Simulated assay, not measured.
Amino acid sequence: MSQERLQEAIRLRSAGQAEQARTILMELLVSKPDDPVLNYQMAWTCDNLGLEHEAIPFYTRAIEHGLSGDDLAEALLGLGSSYRALGEYQRAVEILQRGVAKFPQHRAMQAFLAMALYNHQHYREAMELLLRNLAESSADTSIQHYQKALLFYAPRLDEVDPG
């Protein structure tokens, strides 16, 4: 794999020239079809082009062939998001739950999981996840002022005080 060509493809995608990046990545994948980094970069490029359906096999191959670290987190998020965008909500939830289990501090992964849960009509779980993340990560002073209450009520949204 030509590292220079890969960097050129990444630079082109970042500059809004995803179609040119895609062409380079396709050329590189001919000689290394199972390379996890190339597959991940191709998936990301397809996503940039709005080609979620085409991105899915590249994300899957990247993950299956040993992608690791931050790239693995982003690939799981991208794969789950692609499934969600295509209306495959159960698959999206499964992939994003796997991502949250592996990367529990990845707030964006949790937000995408909340969206997929919502789409899958798991409204309570989606709201609880969003409220917990909001309370735990917001720097807003009014949110921080009510953090304890938000964390208390997040798993109890359906409870009513009988009093």
Rank of each mutant, 00 (worst) to 15 (best):
E52P: 02
R98C: 09
D161A: 09
Y153E: 11
S2T: 10
L157M: 03
E4M: 04
A18V: 07
F152Y: 15
N48R: 12
S81D: 13
L67N: 12
L131A: 04
M26G: 11
K148P: 02
A15C: 04
E4C: 01
F112C: 01
A55Q: 09
Y123D: 11
A85K: 11
L12F: 05
G50E: 04
S2A: 11
S2K: 11
N119H: 06
R124H: 08
D47F: 02
L86C: 07
Q105S: 13
L150F: 07
H145D: 14
S14D: 15
L86V: 07
V37S: 07
T45Y: 08
M127N: 01
L51C: 08
L29A: 10
C46R: 06
T141H: 06
A15R: 10
R98V: 02
E88H: 08
D35R: 02
H122Q: 15
H65M: 06
R107V: 15
E88S: 09
W44V: 14
C46M: 13
A154F: 06
R124N: 01
H106L: 09
L129T: 02
L6R: 10
L25D: 00
L130S: 11
D140N: 14
Q110K: 15
R61S: 12
F112V: 03
R156H: 14
A154W: 03
Q41W: 05
D140I: 03
H65P: 01
L129R: 01
D47M: 12
D35K: 02
P104N: 10
F103P: 03
Q144G: 05
H65C: 11
S31D: 14
A139R: 14
M26P: 01
N39E: 12
Q105G: 09
Y89P: 00
H122D: 09
Q20N: 12
M1R: 10
I24H: 03
I10S: 07
M115G: 02
E19K: 14
S2P: 14
H106N: 15
D161Y: 12
H106S: 10
E54V: 02
A9R: 05
D47Q: 15
A135W: 04
L28G: 04
H106K: 13
A139Y: 08
G69V: 07
H53C: 05
L130Y: 02
A114V: 04
L113D: 00
S137M: 07
L67M: 12
R22N: 13
F152N: 12
E125Q: 07
M1H: 13
R84V: 03
S82L: 06
P36N: 11
H120T: 02
A21V: 04
Q147G: 12
A139Q: 15
F58L: 08
A73R: 15
D35T: 00
G87C: 09
L38R: 06
Q90P: 00
H145L: 10
E125R: 01
Y89I: 00
D70G: 14
Q121C: 01
L117K: 06
D47C: 14
V160T: 09
Y59S: 08
S142K: 12
R13K: 14
L49H: 06
P36L: 11
Q20F: 07
A116E: 05
T45N: 10
E52F: 04
L131P: 05
H122A: 06
Q110T: 10
G87R: 01
T45M: 10
